[in-house]
């Protein structure tokens, strides 16, 4: 390989890596924000429909074994964001553990009720409805609505309406979790490949060849999808990272070939015209 060609390849690979990094980061930010945006829009719609003082969503975090309030709507709801509670206590805990929706009103009649949480949020509700967020067979969190302004308590119909909103939220959450599952699937494939007997470079070439086999000359979407997915692998160990690097190199070579092919095509006929 001439020094000239090597430099060109390195340059191509570097620019490809940069592009991948930018796209992957943009994708990550978009994904995180859009998931949260859907949850926020669900609690906002819930609070508006019920004409409630506040609505919030708490999700279960298995690592800390806590229910964490992720989003909230309403002036009285803001204090709860970021708060975490034990999943075996209180209304939210009961609903989370049992999957059984329920509503309480006249809450202040029991001065001890929820006092600890209320003190942290500086807001003690008069009435509350809590429904589970159910994804597949699992309860993954709880949607709560506090203090309907037009009535002293929540009706049976309110519980069912809240359950509809909870289903929207659960669907949004499971969609973002599927994305995460894809990333972990790729990570585990990489782990298996990195542990294999095949020389790493050959493996990397094989992966890229397989991923780009059906790629049209002008269609880079498959290549980008692979690049994006690989760039999302953040938890790889050193051996896997080397393989990731090899794959990115192979992608770079592939991109270099494409570029050369295009250069050759450019001066030709209309049929060979590419954008």
């Amino acid at each position: 390989m001439s020094a000239d060609r090597r430099r060109r390849l390195e340059r191509d690979a570097l620019s490809l890596l940069e592009a991948i990094a930018v796209r992957a980061e943009a994708g990550r930010r978009l994904q995180g924000d859009s998931g949260r945006a859907v949850l926020r829009s669900v609690v906002e719609a819930t609070a508006a429909l019920f004409d409630a003082e506040a609505a919030s969503i708490a999700l279960y975090d298995a690592a800390s074994d806590r229910l964490v309030f992720e989003v909230a709507a309403g002036v009285q709801g803001q204090g709860v964001i970021g708060l975490s509670i034990s999943p075996d206590q209180g209304i939210a805990g009961y609903v989370f553990r049992t999957g059984q929706a329920l509503a309480l009103s006249d809450v202040e009649r029991d001065p001890r009720f929820g006092r600890a949480v209320a003190e942290q949020t500086a807001y003690l509700p008069r009435s509350i409805v809590a429904v589970p967020l159910v994804s597949d067979e699992r309860t993954i969190g709880v949607l709560e609505v506090l203090d309907k302004r037009s009535a002293a308590s929540f009706s049976l119909r309110d519980i069912e309406l809240a359950a509809i909103f909870a289903r929207q939220a659960a669907t949004a959450i499971s969609a973002t979790r599927v994305e995460r599952d894809v990333a972990s699937l790729i990570a585990s494939s990489l782990r298996a490949l990195a542990a294999g007997e095949e020389p790493r470079t050959a493996t990397a070439e094989a992966i890229v060849a397989a991923a780009t086999a059906d790629l049209g000359r002008d269609d880079e979407s498959g290549l980008w999808a692979l690049a994006d997915a690989i760039a999302r692998v953040r938890t790889a160990d050193p051996a896997q990272l080397e393989l990731v690097t090899d794959i990115l190199d192979a992608l770079g070579r592939r991109a270099g070939r494409d570029t050369r092919r295009r250069r050759r095509a450019r001066p030709g006929s209309d049929a060979g015209e590419v954008r």
């Binding site: 509503a103 009649r109 029991d110 308590s153």
Partner: peptide, 10 residues
């Protein structure tokens, strides 16, 4: 809990 009472729906 804690000897209290409340109004509940469900």
């Amino acid at each position: 809990r804690d000897g209290g009472r409340t109004v509940a729906t469900g």
